[in-house]
């Protein structure tokens, strides 16, 4: 039995046997029809973004809009890339996203483990207090946090961008649910082997809940990668800025926006995340289920 199957069995339940039961042909056709419908409805705006980035300046504003670029051009991509130091923005975004997500994942595993397995009086209140962080609108945190970061002397630094968002409530919630769904026998076995809490957490619980952790990490990466407002406020110089701010730079304050260039620029942002999603999507499916199904 491979590790992969082992996880699947223990975390999600018996693996589905897709063709175990013959399905009515009509249902399958309905399924394909629905799939085509979904791909069209959900994919259309994405298609529009995609072809927009290959259109010339004038064509974007053309009425009626063209479903395929009349004169497809690559020019928007170099135009966007050269309008701002995007290379630098990539580096900053990668640093900020990687460190921010790493911190969130580590803190979520630790907190979720404690909430699921370690004895503490009033543990449920701690859980609710942690969850309440999800209910505090980011708008009210901006000015106080700017002051705190300024006092620490962290304006325009990586730690200034990362630290205020390093704690995690959503992921703690998700992983707590996933950990609680783990089969008790395995944890018992660890106990018999004489493992302490820390070893149980790092060597038993974390590997077993790997799909949930990967999911959480991906959701965290997406959030950090797209974050705009806080990095804009806490940084000043172009060499500290991140990709979403770079895309904002492509827009003019007054006059027309060259949407072709902006859409090309937003592909800089979207493509890496999409590749990450496609690569990790099996983990996502298994992972979220693990957290959600067994409350």
């Amino acid at each position: 039995m491979t590790t992969r199957e082992f996880e699947y069995e223990t975390v999600v339940g018996p693996a589905p046997r897709a063709d175990a039961r013959p399905r009515p042909r009509a249902m399958r056709w309905l399924g394909y029809l629905a799939m085509i419908g979904v791909v069209i409805v959900i994919g259309l705006p994405i298609y529009w973004t995609l072809i927009g980035s290959f259109k010339l300046y004038n064509e974007i504003y053309r009425v009626p809009p063209t479903w395929f670029p009349l004169e497809p051009t690559w020019q928007n991509f170099p135009d966007a890339w050269n309008a701002a130091p995007f290379g630098r923005y990539y580096i900053n975004s990668i640093i900020v996203t990687a460190l921010g997500s790493l911190s969130e994942v580590a803190l979520a595993i630790m907190s979720a483990y404690a909430l699921a397995f370690v004895r503490f009086p009033g543990k449920n209140y701690v859980f609710i207090i942690l969850l309440s962080a999800l209910m505090i609108p980011v708008e009210i945190t901006i000015i106080p946090n700017y002051l705190t970061i300024a006092r620490l002397g962290w304006i325009n630094t990586y730690q200034g961008i990362i630290v205020p968002g390093a704690a995690i409530a959503y992921g703690t919630f998700l992983l707590r649910q996933a950990f609680k769904a783990l089969p008790y026998e395995v944890l018992e076995a660890a106990r018999v082997d004489g493992a302490g809490h820390l070893r149980t957490m790092t060597s038993v619980v974390a590997p077993m809940a790997q799909p949930a952790i990967v999911t959480m990490a991906l959701l965290s990466l997406v959030a950090k990668w797209n974050d705009f407002l806080w990095p804009l406020i806490v940084t000043n110089t172009a060499d500290m800025r991140t990709l979403p701010i770079g895309i904002f730079w492509l827009r003019d304050q007054e006059g027309l926006v060259n949407w072709g260039v902006v859409m090309a620029g937003s592909l800089f942002l979207i493509v890496p995340v999409m590749i990450g999603f496609i690569w990790a999507q099996r983990y996502i499916v298994d992972g979220i289920a693990a957290g959600a199904v067994k409350g």
């Binding site: 309008a83 000043n236 827009r251 003019d252």
Partner: peptide, 12 residues
Amino acid sequence: TYWGSYSGGLGE
């Protein structure tokens, strides 16, 4: 230090 709002062509 000069804080401004001009980006895109205006920013250039």
